[in-house]
Simulated scan of single mutants.
Amino acid sequence: MIELVGISKTFNGKQGPIHALKDVSLSVKKGEIYGVIGYSGAGKSTLIRCVNLLEKPDQGSVKVKDEDLTKLSTNQLRKARGDIGMIFQGFNLLKTATVYDNIAIPLKLTGLDKENVKERVERYLKIVGLEQKHNAYPAELSGGQKQRVAIARALSFEPEILLSDEATSALDPDTTEAILDLLLKINKELGITILLITHEMNVIQRICDRVAVMENGEIIEEGKTKDIFTAPQHATTKKFVSSLFSHNIPEDILANLNKTGQVVTLSFFGETSGEPALAKVSKEFDIYPNILAGSITQLKDESFGQLVVHFQGDQEIVQKALQLLENNNVKVEGVTLDDSHTGVY
């Protein structure tokens, strides 16, 4: 559906060239929700703006539905953009226009007749849950409602692809959850492919099928959300994942516990998150597991949890118990003093 190959983009800054993108390639499949995460300055905003050529890359190809947008004429590009909707962090609503007109005016400018404009506005306001807000003005809406109007406006062009540029960054946690649920609904019921960028790992965790991690204009890690959460490879990826599992254990306590046993992090995924794994090993082996910290989160389709556990007992028996856990699809990682300095395990 979307294929970026060898995308590079450089801007001229006051202190010299800024290499926003460096030979970036990624592929988004039809019908999936693909997330790009990175800290400020990673290049993700430039990347998503290259998809519809709001930013034209210096090098590389941008293929949407097997058509290279970089090779199209102005008129051809305008037509191709009809299949690509976009929503932004700042909503971009007309302050002096009603909710209805904020959606209707762009449609009218395309030459759509009045009857079809009305039908589309009503249809998509209903989808986003604002059918009672036709005559309201943006100043009368909450942040979440403004974003819903922006989403309805993007959907009214009936695109096959929806680009989301930090669409939840300005919203409070509860409103963010509601907007993410709406994006899931749009993806499932309308079959729209979604490419989103964010700096919030909870957004990736909640709705994305696959994710790319960006840093300094490059993709440093990419894969299924499940794989990125269970086995992050790059230090930056690990930092993002650990932001959802921050288990702070005082260094002096950790040092003492390691003298009397072994402290490990246990990661559970899917069905294993609901299994009484610790009860099994404590029953089978002469050891005493003590849970120090833990949390569980819901990915798009499955749950993922972590526990920091102190195993007290004979070292050889503890190793056998840990091996049994691994044999039952529980990931086991050791916790050291070096880990504790970051406060994240």
Rank of each mutant, 00 (worst) to 15 (best):
M1W: 03
S8W: 01
K9R: 13
K14I: 11
Q15K: 15
Q15R: 15
I18S: 05
I18G: 00
L21K: 00
L21F: 00
D23L: 13
G31Y: 09
E32S: 01
Y34K: 02
G35Q: 13
S40Y: 03
G43N: 02
I48H: 07
R49N: 12
L53A: 01
K56I: 13
V62Q: 08
V64G: 06
K65S: 00
D68L: 09
T70G: 07
L72T: 03
S73Q: 07
N75V: 14
G82F: 11
G85T: 03
I87Y: 07
F88G: 06
G90R: 13
L93Q: 00
A97R: 10
T98P: 10
Y100H: 01
I103A: 09
L107C: 10
L109I: 14
G111V: 01
L112K: 09
R120N: 05
R120F: 06
R120S: 01
E122R: 14
L125A: 02
V128E: 05
L130V: 03
L130Y: 07
E131Y: 08
Q132V: 07
E140I: 08
L141R: 06
L141Q: 04
Q145D: 10
L155I: 02
F157S: 12
E160V: 06
I161N: 04
E166H: 03
A167C: 04
T168R: 06
P173R: 10
D174I: 15
D174V: 15
T175M: 11
T176E: 08
E177W: 12
E177K: 12
I179E: 04
K185H: 14
K185T: 13
N187A: 00
L190I: 07
D209T: 01
I220D: 07
I220E: 01
E221A: 02
G223H: 04
T225A: 11
I228S: 05
T230F: 11
A231L: 09
Q233C: 11
H234V: 06
H234E: 14
A235C: 04
T236S: 12
K239F: 14
S243P: 02
H247Y: 15
I249Y: 04
P250S: 13
D252A: 10
D252F: 10
K259V: 08
K259G: 07
K259S: 05
T260M: 05
T260R: 12
G261L: 02
T265D: 07
T272K: 04
S273A: 15
A279S: 15
K283G: 12
K283Q: 03
E284D: 15
D286K: 10
I287Y: 05
Y288N: 06
I291M: 06
L292V: 06
A293G: 10
Q298C: 07
L299G: 01
V309C: 00
F311Q: 09
Q312V: 05
G313L: 00
Q315L: 05
E316Y: 10
V318Q: 08
L322R: 08
L324P: 06
L325A: 09
L325W: 12
K331H: 08
V332E: 00
E333D: 15
V335N: 02
T336G: 07
L337C: 08
D338H: 01
D339A: 09
H341G: 14
V344I: 15
